[in-house]
Amino acid sequence: MSENLLEVKGLEKHFPITKGLFKRQVGAVRAVDGIDIEVKSGETLGLVGESGCGKSTTGRLFTRILEPTAGTITFEGEDISHKSVTQLRPLRRDVQMIFQDPYSSLNPRHTVGSIVSAPLQIQNIPTPQGLKKAVQELLELVGLNPEHYNRYPHEFSGGQRQRIGIARALALRPKLIIADEPVSALDVSIQAQVVNLLDDLQREFDLTYVFIAHDLSVVRHISDRVAVMYLGKVVEVAERDELYKNPRHPYTVALMSAVPVPDPVRRDRAQRDRVLLTGDVPSPINPPSGCRFRTRCWKAQDICATEEPPLVVRLDDPASHQTACHFPVVEDEAVAGRRPAAAPA
């Protein structure tokens, strides 16, 4: 059993909505609405879900860029839920973030050298070999030419910029890296390069990742454990292979069946098996009572509206596989495309 690097309990983040003449608070966007999850040391936890499910907010809470409305965040046994900016400074060394957009997350007026060295300078990290040398080593590590130290971000392609972002995140040798959609803005072939790089770095530096993405295939490739989010809640969490082979929550099933498979031969079957969800995701301001997915769920019954299903082990699943559903999908059920076929010869 590996220890928990990060642990959250009852985590909530509500953004107030104001209205009318006096900007009274009339409600809140319940972006994250009660999450219990842990990140184990050395693992990659995938956070997957569609837009508005709260996965990015969760990532920002993990790094304490945002302060939670309720609940606790514990990093290495220490409660960091409500620490001040100054108190958080040591934490910034241990937890770093990689962002989605490699174009807007790098200051266009700074050279690569100063972007990558900034965390070292801010944290006053001694660099025995000299700052420049340290940065060049980092650049080399992420597959960039160390001689490009003095260039500006606009001189790099999207993939290279993402590598700069990774080098910056690595500068402080963090324990935990929160990667928020790190490859979704990149071309397919570049995506794969960056995914491989993240893999290599994890091995080399014993990094722990929280990998936030909407792309189920990429999440499956990179994660050890995956949590599926819907409307501010974790609806299912399990070891990677277990989750993809044995999805229990109807939402997870629908999500997986919706991913187009690059094989025209299987097209008809994929379409027949597909669980097409109707309608839109409800508003996080006024989430449905009981189970939040019930408004789009084909298995919903009366109890789903009245009682919120807890995230617990269902059926005969292993202890690490928890599902928040009253009527989990069983394996031989006539829904769809949930089991990956063996690779064709």
Binding site: V188, S189, R240, Y244, V261, P340, A342
Partner: peptide, 20 residues
């Protein structure tokens, strides 16, 4: 380059090297 849901998980992806 594509991880695929219809195949077993590969250890590494095999991207095209370099940039367009």
């Amino acid at each position: 380059s594509m991880p695929r849901l219809d195949r077993e998980v590969r250890d590494r992806l095999n991207p095209v090297k370099g940039t367009p």
